[in-house]
């Protein structure tokens, strides 16, 4: 049996998971999302990654980005290396893809900022 703290929402439920014959026994979660989290955490822990990429805009040197789905926890630093190779030279909106299917994880690196909206007032 293993115990995890659910990180899906601020409740932070402590969840116990036990492998049983035809699946898992899960205790301590308040909701269904916690159930899935705990099983994943035991079998294949995943995380979403939020970071920035370099841009060539002097007034906006970094664009915030994220993975659009979770990636395996042990891939985080490898994915960071890929992201750090980028230098963005055009304006993007939120959810525009910066790197497609990064390192075959199935996740895209997408923008979390609408540059035009931000720059508009200037």
């Amino acid at each position: 049996m293993e115990e995890f703290t659910c990180i899906i929402c601020p409740n932070g439920c402590k969840i116990k998971v036990e492998k049983i014959e035809d699946g898992f026994k899960v205790e301590g979660n308040i909701c269904k999302r916690g159930y899935e989290f705990a099983i994943n955490e035991m079998t294949n822990p995943k995380r979403s990654l939020c970071t920035t990429v370099k841009t060539s805009y002097k007034d906006f040197p970094r664009l915030p980005v994220k993975t659009d789905r979770e990636i395996p926890k042990d891939m985080i630093f490898k994915v960071m290396e890929e992201i750090n190779k980028i230098n963005l030279t055009h304006m993007v909106k939120s959810n525009d893809i910066i790197i497609e299917n990064v390192l075959g994880t199935g996740a895209n690196i997408v923008s979390t900022c609408d540059m035009e909206l931000i720059f508009k007032e200037e």
Binding site: C9, P10, S48, C50, T51, T52, P64, K66, T112, C113
Partner: peptide, 17 residues
Amino acid sequence: IHDGFGLVEFKERLTGP
């Protein structure tokens, strides 16, 4: 730039921006 914002307001996990 990290996520976890908006769970109450939008029922979604958004980043700050």
